[in-house]
Amino acid sequence: MLEICNLACTRGDHQLFSGLSFSLAAGELLQVQGENGKGKTSLLRTLCGFITPAAGEIRWRGQDIRELDEEYYAEMVYLGHLNAIKDELNALENLRISAGLAGCEVSDKEAIEALRHMGLRGRETLPVKVLSQGQRRRVALARLLVGNAPLWILDEPLTALDVGAVGLMQELIGTHLAKDGMVVFTTHQPLEVAGVELRRLTLT
């Protein structure tokens, strides 16, 4: 479904990687590894189309993502270092708005359900600025529950999460993969999903 051919990426004068090729089929889990500064985030951002690759192609369902544009974006979710949530809004508003920007309307009921699933029961209508870092991350992650995009691109999804939330995340990824979803992620913490083979891509 997702194919990467001969991809190269440069930042300024510096070449991060080149000749990178891999593909991802439905139900597969891929971890991008590498030391700091090897281009993990840049690779994920290239997959999102933020960065134009210096060379190579990214294809989704056999078509270049540049050509697909909005069709591709309808089928992917990206979660970056930044949570993309507003301090002034409460968790519920944040979730509904970010789902709306991602193109799907979410009812209050669905949103509350998703937030509760992420362990935020009782925090749904508190302004996000009073929540802890981990709780904010949970609000951001709740977005994964309300969409139905098959491709998840997660950049360090486990930062600031406690053990319980990491377990929850593993379970979430497990169910997504079982529904023929795909996940590309980076992490510095161990993440194991029961019954799924973890593929690794190491950037050097």
Partner: peptide
């Protein structure tokens, strides 16, 4: 600054 703009660029609409 808070990353919302990234999400806006990924919006499947115009």
């Amino acid at each position: 600054i808070d990353g919302t703009l990234e999400q806006m660029l990924l919006a499947p609409q115009s």
